[in-house]
Write a protein that binds this DNA or RNA. Structure first.
Lengths: 110, 110
DNA sequence: CGTATGTGCAACTACTGAGTTGCAGGTTTG
DNA sequence: CAAACCTGCAACTCAGTAGTTGCACATACG
């Protein structure tokens, strides 16, 4: 299992950045200028978010003429899901062990 | 679908805090003092992380005698998974629409 | 060639957050 | 009661970051 990178978790931490990612996912290849209409921040702020998302591998950039369009790259999100699943698995393992202990006690002590 | 709270995403952003959460998941009810041995930070730092995790609903605290033990509460992680799934779903929808357009073009133009 | 439009870089502010040290408060046990 | 152990609070430092403004650069088009 690939280890989820810190960059992905960090990228998802900011609410505005999550909105950017969601908009990119919905609209498909989009530019920072197009996103300005849908967000309460300046184009430069959006551009910075897109840089962070690009570094995290969550978005790919492609220059088309004078503008730069960003598209979703959903793969790193799988790492996050995997991390969450592993936490849950370890939790479940623990519960299973605990149940076993309880069962043993019932058999031996009762 | 419940909306994943900002607090959960923010809580998962820090690597040390993710390690704390993972350790709590593995060990089960654990105290800050017990975790000091496994992490390269002070007890107070760990205590702060546990406060953040508690506020995010990822951990529950229970006082047992003189110490306080924390246990995993995995439910908020489902919200994160759901958010990721929705991003993926919108991505898939977009791809489906795109494929449809391509198919229509093939039929009409070829 | 000049103008539209869109992107990129730099400097700056303000805030948040991780981590530390130091010390006070609570709870059990001898 | 006192000692030992754990937790809790406060003040502080330091670094990172979201956001802004301002301006320079690139690309297409009349």
């Amino acid at each position: 299992m690939r280890e989820a990178s810190d960059a992905v978790f960090a990228a998802l931490a900011d609410p505005t950045r999550r909105r950017v990612l969601r908009l990119v996912a919905e609209r498909g290849p989009t530019s920072a200028t197009l996103l300005v209409r849908e967000l309460p921040v300046t184009r430069q702020a959006i551009a910075k978010h897109l840089v962070v998302l690009t570094r995290a591998g969550l978005v790919t950039r492609q220059r088309t003429g004078p503008e730069v369009r960003y598209a979703l790259a959903p793969e790193p999100l799988d790492d996050v899901s995997a991390w969450i699943a592993e936490i849950g698995a370890r939790w479940d393992e623990r519960l299973a062990r605990l149940r076993q202990v309880v069962l043993d006690q019932e058999i031996g002590g009762f």
